[in-house]
Design a protein around this nucleic acid. Structure first.
Ligand SMILES: [Mn+2]
Ligand SMILES: [Mn+2]
Ligand SMILES: [Mn+2]
Ligand SMILES: [Mn+2]
Lengths: 228, 228
DNA sequence: ATTTTGGTTTTGACTAACCAAAATTTAATG
DNA sequence: CATTAAATTTTGGTTAGTCAAAACCAAAAT
């Protein structure tokens, strides 16, 4: 039988949780529970059930990670989520800061037909409004490598590829200062002590943000396109 | 707290069930249960809970009908359902025979914002693809009076306003023979014994259908528009 | 090597929604 | 009026998902 929305939410949270920690590392129950807004005991019980059905690899007191089957399912949920977000922005004209919550619900009820139609209408896009990659219909993730404003080279132009925090307030901040995907900028300096990163936009505009925020902005080396 | 999708489905089924039976009459539990695909005992238990929260008026062994509060909620679900159907047909290009099932799920998870946006994109429509009237955002039904092919005058032109059966096979039949909302036709004769109704389209084409089918096609007197 | 501590697992209990089958009521039939 | 039939309600039991709080484990700190 097909997975409930609860199961889908768990798998997605496990994927997102494990992806932002040292490779191969399992996600602790506490983190998973917090991400899902349930108490730890609930997460433990649920994860044991998921392990029983072969969707996750669970080691008591150590954490959980997705099995191959679980990863495919998570990818398909993420695919739906991200296509929906893009559809809401591009076709329905919603703001990129308000589509995440809508997609959180819609992702569980859209039929394959509908998702395929949206994909088609959008021209088979590779990324969603936040730059998050869209898995294909087979549940495979596209290759994607990039660094953050914390780790990229300083003094060389980079292009924003992705914002890894869906919180509306942060997204509005990003939009206001022109740090959205596609925009070009440069890291001028990083100040360990001040916990800050200084940036300059293509128009020479200066901006200093905290390291917490900086690590949520992913970038890649700009193509030597315009300035030959 | 906001109603679960189960509650929304019950209210909608009670509305639709009572609407197609003698006025003021309550809907028997058996009918409700059948419409929802549950056993009668389940419907009884649920309806008692709904009565407890003031959404329905329930009389044991006699049936159930909506309270004013329940009617408003049902109308809002119907509004979402019908706007979604129209959106799927007009914006996403799905067939009118495949949108009902999609809407059945989507109606429970679309936010007011999204519904309002769809309403706007569609130009604040009055009816859905099947001619079913769309309640307003306050949960009020628009006035609508019409008869069916079983009860309308014979020998005078009528316009199809509504198809009151969402079943895909029937909708395709209707489409194939040009009986969709907006089309003009005329009842030539009704044959009690043969259980049949003869129609002629505007192009003079003849067609005979059963009374069961005929009563699912609602019509109203054609405006004396074209042929002055 | 103990003790503390923070995270994890268990236990017991709850709610929403459902079914199967027994008990009951109403309505129809003889 | 008594009997049967049909529909409805009750009763007892299930599953998914959750929380509160007690019990437990493992790693760190004394
Ligand atoms: Mn979700
Ligand atoms: Mn996104
Ligand atoms: Mn529904
Ligand atoms: Mn409809």
């Amino acid at each position: 039988m097909l997975p409930s929305s609860t199961v889908e939410n768990y798998l997605k949270a496990i994927y997102l949780g494990t992806s932002q920690r040292p490779d191969g590392d399992r996600l602790p129950m506490g983190h998973l529970a917090a991400a899902l807004g349930v108490v730890p005991g609930t997460a433990t019980t649920m994860v044991k059930a998921l392990a029983e059905s072969g969707l996750v690899d669970y080691e008591p007191y150590n954490g959980v990670r997705l099995s191959a089957a679980g990863l495919t399912l998570a990818a398909l949920v993420l695919r739906r989520h991200r296509l929906i977000e893009l559809f809401l922005v591009r076709v329905m004209g919603l703001g990129w800061d308000e589509v995440h919550d809508e997609a959180e619900h819609l992702e569980h009820v859209m039929s394959d037909r509908l998702i395929a139609r949206m994909d088609e209408m959008l021209g088979f896009p590779q990324v969603d409004p936040h730059g998050d990659p869209i898995p294909n219909a087979a549940g495979e993730f596209p290759a994607h490598e990039s660094t953050t404003l914390m780790t990229c080279d300083t003094g060389t132009p980079v292009t924003v590829t992705r914002i890894t925090d869906q919180e509306a307030g942060f997204l509005r901040f990003v939009q206001q200062y022109g740090l959205m995907p596609g925009h070009e900028l440069e890291v001028v300096a990083r100040d360990e002590a001040a916990d800050a990163v200084s940036l300059s936009g293509p128009d020479g505009q200066r901006l200093t943000i905290g390291t917490r925020a900086a690590s949520k902005v992913r970038v890649s080396a700009s193509q030597a396109s315009s300035r030959a």
